[in-house]
Amino acid sequence: MVTSNTTAGYGAPRDAAVPRYSTRIAKIVNSSLYRHTLGAAVESRWGRLILLAGVPLVWLIALHIGPIYQMLKISLLSHYPVQPGVDSQFTLANYRLFFSESLYFSPLIKSFIFATVATASTLIVVYPVAYYVAKVVRPEGRSKALLLLLVPFWAGELIRTFSVIMLLANRGAVNVLLREIGLIDRPIPMLYTSFSLGFGLVYLICLYMLLPLYSAIEKIPTQYLDAAADLGAGPFTRFRKIILPLSKDGIVSGCCLVFLTCIGVFATPMMLGGPNTVLFPETISGFFHGASDKWPVGAAFALIMLVTALIAAGIFMRLVGGRKRSAI
């Protein structure tokens, strides 16, 4: 370690060809402020460890786990925010409330049905597209073909949802077009129904399906397909026996991603859904914007949703049996 005062230390200019910024770094490194703080810290093993792990661990524990933990804690309280004179005690009543009223129960069921249908539709719609880009397009054109698919996703969630209204409204493009060519006299009410909500959801989330599918399909060696074709397998057999099993990974991660996003979607049902499509997130949000001491109920409901969604995703993973990938 060259950190003594007599030698110039790291990065000192040895000849004129050394770029200027390196002397600036040397100046910082050799300054007494640096040597007494960071410089001293990295000298010892513990100092290095604290420097490396301190901030990340505090952040991860406080802000990645903290909020969920607080939510769990509050969901078990009878009152929150605590008001003077009211005693808040430990209770399971908030969870019991969920199972006692179909008013609360049915939005969750609806949320699950919507998310499942949207996930399945997205998979069916997106799969051929992902396959086309990964295997049919020549490698040089691949990134361009992919880029074209990404463009709409630089528009935000809200703008994309809003643009669906243009298509489906009573005087939107579809209805006007159908009337022009004389197929209908009266507009078909499409907006503010389950259809518009489903359409909007698929429109919103297809990218989350596309990217995992694409990267999984792209990895399938083309020789496998050629070999299968040489041995007489038709397109359908090749798809069923080779492509589908080998892209299972992408299907699993894409479906889980889409499903979890769909479950937690909040603005889309409020913009595209109608009175019949009150989903669970809207129910939960009511507890936070209405009367103030309903927070524990909202927290309990949010946890119920989180746990059931994760369990559903877990069951799906187990059933389809994607290859266990190590996270790191």
Binding site: P67, L260, T261, G264, V265, F288, G298, L303, M305, L306
Partner: peptide, 10 residues
């Protein structure tokens, strides 16, 4: 991984 709505509430 946590759905947006739940993350917001927590």
């Amino acid at each position: 991984v946590v759905p947006g709505m739940i993350s917001a509430i927590s």
